[in-house]
């Protein structure tokens, strides 16, 4: 079957025998976007989190056929070195990553979360960012999420900054 969707703002068409193939493997192996990670295959760790129409989705458990007509954003489409997303900027400022493997999933989850809750409390963060990091970078991540919210607010209202 043929499935069409937007990948990081560009039209993408994939021809795949099994439409139930998880989007994760289509993005990684067919479309060569390796920033979305395989961690568990059961939507339990969040390493594969990407955005579908702005919603954070664990792509290891999302059949590619459901992406038809939708807009998929991966870490490669979140921001660029020249123009980082506020979440990426904050992650750099706080020097969050250690091994780094889970970080794209966390950043994608955070990007979606801040759209809904632009001024989160610690408790909001604790209750909504529920991916797994084995290196234990949560402490810096929590700071970085607050910082990202601040950067986002400043860029939305430059005169208030």
């Amino acid at each position: 079957m043929t499935i069409s969707f937007q990948l990081n703002g560009k039209p993408q068409m994939v021809d795949i025998a099994d439409g139930n193939t998880p989007l994760l493997w289509v993005v990684r192996d067919m479309l060569d976007h390796k920033g979305t990670k395989f961690g568990c295959g059961k939507a339990a760790c969040g390493a594969c989190t990407l955005l579908i129409d702005g919603e954070a989705v664990r792509s290891c458990s999302y059949a590619v056929k459901f992406a038809e007509g939708k807009s998929v954003t991966t870490i490669e489409g979140l921001g660029t070195h020249e123009n980082p997303h506020p979440v990426q900027q904050a992650w750099i400022e706080e020097i969050v990553p250690q091994c780094g493997y889970c970080q794209p999933g966390f950043m994608m989850a955070t990007a979606a979360f801040l759209e809904k809750n632009p001024t989160p409390t610690d408790e909001d963060i604790d209750n909504n960012i529920i991916n797994v990091c084995r290196c234990g970078t949560y402490y810096r991540m929590r700071k970085a999420i607050h910082r990202a919210a601040q950067i986002k607010a400043e860029s939305a209202n430059p005169t208030n900054s």
Binding site: K34, T36, P84, P97, Q103
Partner: peptide, 17 residues
């Protein structure tokens, strides 16, 4: 700052898998 910071923040394909 970590020298691998940007590679890890922008999702570069640096891992074994």
């Amino acid at each position: 700052a970590r020298i691998d910071l940007e590679a890890k923040v922008f999702g570069d394909p640096i891992f074994g898998l």
